[in-house]
Simulated assay, not measured.
Amino acid sequence: MARHLRKIENHEELNIWTAFTDLMSNAFLILILFLLLTIVTSSISQQIFQQNTNNDTPPIIEIKDEGAYRFSSGSANIPPPMLNYIVRRIVPEIEKTTKQYKINVVEIIGHTDGQPNGQVVSNLDLNLEKVVSGKLPITNLQAGSNADLGLMRALAVVKVLRDFQTQQGRLRGLKFRAYSAAQLILPSGELAAIARQDDVARRRMEIRFTRLGEVRQVK
């Protein structure tokens, strides 16, 4: 009888130990699955974040001042091939980008190299508003500096876009702004060092996209 009871006790102990090991194994598997799920979820979230970040950042369109699209030295007159390029290639790209990113302002920034712009006396202070309003052609402006020249070339591109907007009924709802960076910013976005030589790589027009927000003062 005693031997029979010991067998029962040993059998019960074995069953308890087996159940315990099964429980620990299942808990370990659940922990592994939880860790894998956490890793996968984190990876997917990071990919979604990067994708959304990229989608929230519109591209910068660059028109290089070279070849058939090159301005004459010291001039803001747009050559015919460049005019055709703006109308046929740049305008559709602006339409696509502004729609995709819900943009309402297009900024045109003129960049020059570091060559001094001769001994010309600037007349932008006297005539700039008249040119922007269409009372004077842009050829009446005289650039006394690279800052003047960059702004004049940006204004020339803005005029093409505004005329296209008015005459063709496209680019609706967009405002265009002209700015000059003169010789200060390299294509990489870094500040330029002093360099007075001819450098075609630095001469360019940049088209940037932004959204106007509410104007407020920080006090």
Rank of each mutant, 00 (worst) to 15 (best):
R70G: 00
D113L: 03
Q167P: 00
P116I: 06
L126D: 15
P81F: 08
L126Y: 15
Q119T: 14
D148N: 14
V91S: 06
N104F: 10
L171D: 04
R153D: 11
S180L: 01
L184E: 09
L149H: 08
I108H: 09
M152S: 11
L161F: 02
I90W: 01
P79E: 06
N146D: 13
G150C: 09
N77Y: 09
I108P: 01
Y85N: 03
V87R: 14
L184K: 07
L136A: 04
N123Y: 07
A68E: 13
T112K: 07
V160I: 15
D125W: 13
I94Y: 07
S73N: 08
Q115D: 00
N140G: 02
V158F: 05
E129A: 15
R170I: 03
I138K: 13
V120M: 05
S75R: 03
D148Y: 06
S145Y: 14
I138Q: 10
E129C: 04
Q168W: 00
Y69F: 13
Q119E: 15
L155R: 11
N117K: 11
L149C: 08
T112S: 08
V106R: 01
F164L: 10
V157M: 05
E107R: 12
R170D: 05
E93P: 02
T166D: 06
S133Q: 12
Y69E: 02
D163M: 10
A182M: 06
R162G: 04
I86Y: 07
L141T: 08
P79W: 08
Q100H: 11
L184F: 08
Q168V: 08
I90T: 00
R177V: 10
V121Y: 12
T166S: 07
I94T: 03
D125K: 15
A182C: 01
V160C: 06
I109R: 06
A182Y: 04
T97Q: 01
E93I: 04
T166K: 05
K99V: 05
A68M: 05
K102Q: 08
F71K: 00
A156P: 09
T139A: 13
Q165M: 09
K159M: 07
R70C: 08
Q165N: 13
L174D: 06
Y179I: 07
G74T: 04
V131M: 10
P92G: 04
R88V: 07
P116R: 15
V132W: 10
K99L: 07
D113C: 05
K159H: 11
L155Y: 12
Y101H: 14
V157Q: 00
P79M: 03
K159Q: 15
E107F: 10
V87E: 09
S180M: 03
S75E: 12
K102N: 11
A154F: 03
A147C: 05
K135P: 02
I90L: 09
L184Y: 10
M82T: 02
G173T: 09
F176H: 03
A156D: 07
L149N: 07
L136V: 06
S72Y: 07
V120K: 11
E129K: 14
P79F: 00
R162C: 12
V91P: 05
S75D: 13
V106S: 06
P81M: 09
A156K: 05
A147P: 02
A178K: 01
S73F: 10
T166M: 02
E93S: 11
M82Q: 10
T98Y: 02
P137N: 14
L128Y: 15
L128R: 14
I94R: 01
E95G: 01
P79I: 02
S133R: 05
N117G: 07
G110M: 05
K159V: 00
